[in-house]
Design a protein around this nucleic acid. Structure first.
Lengths: 346, 346
DNA sequence: CCGCTTCGTCGAAACGCTTCGACGAAGTTC
DNA sequence: GAACTTCGTCGAAGCGTTTCGACGAAGCGG
């Protein structure tokens, strides 16, 4: 494996000149540059990443920190990852995937102090997330996917849950639905401070109230069975419901199954909108689900772009951006079969 | 940030002694070791990964090379990734996610020559895969998930498609099915030399022939529509079919939809087995799919373990292992409604 | 044409670690 | 007790870059 010395010798210049050609840190005459470039090509030279990292104190490696507590990633999280990987590659960075659970803060501290990561994207951020503190103390540049409770000082990208819920509700209301039930994540998830669950809850209340409707909400365990149970609970609480808005990607197939089991047809009897869902999953259902499609890979990409801009550029600006999910109308929503007269829900 | 020099000074020993304490390369007396350890703790010392990598010529970084041609990863591929990430973390390695498509072999060459990766796990291996050659030439230790055509010299982990298909067919046959159709990936995918498609095709032929049955196979595009079309083709070719074995995870929901559309019930009229499927996806269908569950995260884990063993251990053995998918019986298979007399299919 | 900046290049000192050879001090062997 | 080992430690030489100060050679204003 050729080193810079070899290149310098062959091109008959000093090592530093070769370095300047490579990094562009100082002006080099065209003639010299060509000599060096030729020598590099001839020797098939590739700079040694470790040496470069040591000398320059920048590894050109970014970390993607994802908790692995739960069993596997959903389609949305996977999209974060692939989007981030692609963007990092484009920006000339490497992306290391670090499964650091919420528990092992020490591992995180160690990782941050190793000076291997130029910066970090943090996934699945909780409203109060200690990992943020640890990383900030270690002085590692940081971008969140998701938000903490106090968003003032940090860079983040997140889904615009407010806007997303508003659009979903507007879609259903415009079809004529008045009695809409929101199926959220489980009570335990809510209690743990899971941002999306909390924000959509509030957004749903606001959106429904805005339309002069009563917000009905049910918590569902993250499973098909949870979905079935939630739907039963929903009917108990609001027998005349005509539409379900579901945040819980895992539960939604249980909801559909239970609906069919009760002899109700989708969308004729009950309309269903799935929130923060990937098209792939939405297409799996029969009928295909009208869904708020999450901007998954865009989130990953934008997070990485914000991070690299921060690292490469001189400006130290923080980047805060919300992306709404986009409404994709498929077969699971329609006007309610029997039009509910306005006010019938009280 | 404290360096080794700081530790050495505080502990009143030489730098090399500190290094030996850290790496265990040479014997160090207990007294000295304790002094050093105390100094490290007091200074909150973390070794600098880049410096260590440069000096030792081992980065403790592994690469996971996944092509990103297609739109996103399926649940099975995602499981590879998370399994690999977790295993790498356990083994004390970092895992970088490199989206190197089939096209940019130069990128791969560059990556391999940067000496940043101690070893590499290659996903989505084709029967004839140039990436393998490139990596071998660069001298990068390599483990495949999947297999090339010539398996003699390489380390790999793969699904045991033979065994998987055999079990799936045996399950259906034991229920009384005689007329079984295999829905494979698209003709284009077959032609491109996609191993799983080719191996399952052959395995299906063998398994059916072994039972004295005629193997009927259909290629389906990777989409719900592709599944619908495939099922139509299947009925054209074998009107009396009572069971479908589907390799194509994407197409299977189309198959189910088309079945329902034709007024056929699953599993009463037609049984469906999904091959190489994750439980999450299998649970999404109604009824939940009987499936051959892919050992996704185990594959990722084992690949990484084989790689790290090769790197850390002295033995230079190659690791070749096949894992079968496991049959998980859910609601989509049953005995055919009208028992087919033996030999009815000729 | 003299002092000034700018340009292009060089040599050398880091960067923070590993590893090799060396070398006393002890312990062993006859 | 002389001749060897073994043990524990040290100093120094890398590992392959980047980066800083320096320094001739031009280019330029006055």
């Amino acid at each position: 494996m050729a080193t810079m010395h070899d290149v310098a010798r062959l091109a008959q210049v000093s090592v530093s000149t070769v370095s300047y050609v490579l990094t562009g840190t100082r002006p080099i005459s065209q003639a010299t540059r060509n000599k060096v470039l030729a020598a590099m090509a001839q020797l098939d030279y590739q700079p040694n990443a470790m040496a470069r990292g040591l000398a320059s104190r920048r590894s050109r490696i970014l970390g993607l920190l994802m908790p692995m507590d739960e069993r596997g990633l959903g389609a949305t999280e996977t999209a974060f990852v692939t989007g981030a990987a692609a963007a990092a590659s484009v920006a000339g960075y490497h992306l290391v995937l670090s499964p650091v659970g919420g528990g092992n803060l020490d591992d995180l501290r160690r990782l941050a102090s190793q000076r291997m990561l130029d910066g970090v994207v943090l996934m699945e951020v909780q409203l109060a997330d200690e990992r943020v503190t640890v990383l900030q103390e270690a002085g590692v540049p940081l971008v969140l996917i998701g938000r903490t409770g106090d968003t003032s000082t940090l860079s983040y990208v997140d889904i615009d849950f407010d806007q997303t819920v508003r659009e979903a509700v507007a879609h259903l209301v415009s079809l004529g639905h008045r009695r809409i039930v929101y199926v959220n994540h489980s009570a335990a998830t809510l209690a743990s401070g899971y941002g999306p669950a909390l924000r959509t809850r509030d957004a749903f209340t606001a959106a429904m109230t805005g339309h002069g409707l009563e917000p009905v909400m049910i918590a569902a365990e993250d499973s098909a069975a949870g979905g079935r149970a939630a739907l039963a609970a929903a009917f108990a609480q609001a027998p005349e419901l005509t539409a379900v808005l579901a945040m819980n990607e895992t539960a939604i197939f249980g909801i559909l199954g239970e609906l069919t089991g009760r002899g109700l047809s989708v969308p004729d009897d009950v309309s269903v909108v799935s929130m923060v869902t990937s098209p792939q999953v939405a297409e799996l259902a029969t009928p295909a689900l009208t869904a708020m499609t999450s901007p998954g890979s865009a989130l990953g990409r934008i997070a990485i772009e914000a991070l690299t801009r921060h690292l490469d550029g001189p400006a130290d600006l923080r980047h805060q951006q919300l992306l709404p999910c986009t409404l994709e109308i498929r077969g699971s929503t329609a006007a309610p079969r029997r039009h509910q007269p306005v006010g019938a829900d009280q």
